[in-house]
């Protein structure tokens, strides 16, 4: 079978779902965050595949931006999680109880 766009998209879709699964199911902030990274990467894969098959570079540029933004976001996010951890000694969603849910 010839590998086409559809196969790449399927992989990307599954990857997206796995990422979402991590966010929804796991309660550890760090692992949730990894799930979020997976989602971004799923989008990256889809973009690159589309970009290649459409023969158009916009998608790849978008990936470039996404990667950069993700890096910045991770930096801020991890700093935030560490700051919270210092305060509460926990990186668990269930322990975020100061604010009413």
């Amino acid at each position: 079978m010839n590998i086409g766009l559809e196969q790449y998209l399927t992989v990307s879709g599954l990857l997206f779902c796995f990422g979402l699964l991590g966010v929804v199911v796991r309660r550890n902030l760090l692992i949730m965050y990894m799930g979020l990274e997976l989602m971004l990467n799923a989008a990256n894969l889809a973009l690159v595949a589309f970009s290649r098959f459409n023969d158009n570079l916009d998608g790849q540029l978008m990936v470039f931006f996404i990667i950069t933004v993700a890096a910045a976001e991770v930096a801020v996010g991890l700093a935030l999680i560490v700051a919270l951890y210092r305060k509460r000694q926990s990186a668990h969603v269930e322990d975020l109880t100061t604010l009413k849910l």
Binding site: M39, A43, L84
Partner: peptide
């Protein structure tokens, strides 16, 4: 801090949706 973390997680989640959506539209 807790507010920040909640905003972070949910914000990043919405970013995930956003880029995937953009990918599909672009594609």
């Amino acid at each position: 801090l807790e507010a920040g973390v909640k905003y972070l997680i949910l914000g990043a989640l919405s970013s995930g949706f956003l880029v995937f959506g953009i990918a599909l539209i672009y594609g």
